[in-house]
Amino acid sequence: MKIVVLGATKGMGRALARRLCERGDALFLLGRDPEDLSRSARDLEARAGRPAGSVGTAVCDLERPEGFAPALAAAEAGLGGLDTVVVTAGLFETQERLEADAELARRLLTVDFANTVVFCEEARRRLLARGAGTLCVFSSVAGERGRKPVVLYGAAKAGLSRYLEGLDHKFRAQGLRTICVKPGFVRTGMTEGLKTPPFAGEPDAVAARVVKAIDRGQPVVYAPGIWGLIMLVIRLLPRFVMRKIGF
């Protein structure tokens, strides 16, 4: 497969790109920092035993929507086609910090919802123009329910999850498979410093599940799997209970 990954330099994106590259998929990396992208590209090449330069990169920043089309065009040209677009990039901040800093909150809402959707729209047009493809986007279990520790981040991810659901309903018959990944708590640089809850997962375990979901075209995937069950319970809790608990 010919796969573009936005956000492959860190965390779950890094783990996922490694799994895809090691099994033989062709990769093209998009991200903010050209130096960091190039280091990740060399890592993937060395791991997969491919010649230096075979994993291409281009700069793409979720805060700069005008760069989305050129970045995806560069990826499509570099790969000589396009089968799958993966988005793992996003911002995370604690609810406390977001409440205290309106500008930070605006940035996070823009990046995690509006701009991610704009990027997906660009990817959708390109994949549909090629006749078929897969769009795999990392949302979060934070979007499942309005919750005290993730009021703002959760709202952005809820919007993203709904968008991806609608996209899947509308375009699957035309060949566009949309996959919404909902990671639970995963130990990455993003969650560094947060209290680790029970059932925390590792990036590589998430990556293994996501690779399977991409292959099967599974529309929603919780990772680690146990979070599907946890969120089922959370979704069923009555409102007055949610108001009482701190989760």
Binding site: R39, S40, R42, D43, A46, R47, A52, T188, G189
Partner: peptide
Amino acid sequence: VLADRILAFDPDSGTL
């Protein structure tokens, strides 16, 4: 532990 990238590998010399 999160800084775990291979930055270069030269299959001629084995330098990594």
